[in-house]
Simulated scan of single mutants.
Amino acid sequence: MDAQSTTAAPATDAASYLDLGITLALNSWPALTLAVQSNWGGPTSSDKRDWLCGAISEMLSDRPETDAEDLEDVLIQVMNDEFDVVVDDESAGNVAVQIMEFREQTTQGEFGAIQELWETWQKKSQQKSTATSMFKEVDARDEDQETDGEEDDSEGEDVEMGEAPALVRAPREKAEPEVDEDGFTMVKKKR
């Protein structure tokens, strides 16, 4: 489940809020984000992250005895197996604790923390898309300025470019051959 796709169906019950919390926690985990962006899990890295979100959701519902340590072990194992990343910092444990806190909160009907995280995620996504569109706009303006006043050669016609300037090479000074006292010419290695 992709954090972007949850905009279509906002969370309405405890299970969907928990799924949203899991997705946001994993999408906010720098180690996993870097692994996905770098395609360390191959071309399907993003799909593997989405699969992991679903797998954790299933694990928490099918095995209610799961605790933060169990979840941390799963996160570390998946990062190693699927992305060839050895997570040796505390980040997997922090993500596991965050997900377990979300599980506890949703069980009690408290959705505020997940909702707040979701709103922050949306704001960041909007800022990124705004920055991207601004970059594209500036890039498009630059392209327009380059083509102003020029004929459109998009029809595939050859354009007469004129003659290329001749390359002028300065002649090398030829070293005079050295002749030793016996009359033999010295042979020197070229550099």
Rank of each mutant, 00 (worst) to 15 (best):
T33A: 13
L34P: 00
L34H: 05
A35E: 02
V36I: 04
Q37M: 09
Q37T: 10
S38M: 10
S38V: 02
S38H: 07
N39F: 08
N39C: 07
N39Q: 12
W40N: 08
G41C: 04
G41F: 03
G41P: 04
G42H: 04
P43D: 14
P43H: 10
P43C: 06
P43Q: 14
T44Q: 14
T44M: 11
S46A: 15
S46Q: 11
D47V: 08
D47P: 00
D47T: 11
K48G: 04
K48W: 10
R49P: 00
D50C: 07
D50A: 13
W51G: 07
W51M: 07
W51L: 08
L52N: 05
L52V: 08
C53I: 13
C53V: 15
C53Y: 00
C53Q: 04
C53W: 00
C53S: 13
A55D: 13
A55I: 07
A55G: 01
I56T: 05
I56M: 05
S57R: 12
S57Y: 11
S57C: 05
S57A: 09
E58L: 08
M59C: 02
M59V: 00
M59E: 06
L60G: 01
L60E: 06
L60A: 02
S61T: 10
S61I: 04
S61R: 13
D62S: 15
D62E: 13
R63D: 11
P64Y: 03
P64Q: 05
P64H: 01
E65C: 03
E65H: 05
E65N: 02
T66S: 11
T66V: 13
D67V: 06
D67W: 02
D67H: 08
A68H: 05
A68T: 02
A68Y: 06
E69Q: 14
E69I: 14
E69W: 09
E69P: 01
D70P: 01
D73K: 11
D73A: 13
V74C: 06
V74H: 08
V74P: 00
V74K: 12
L75I: 14
L75W: 13
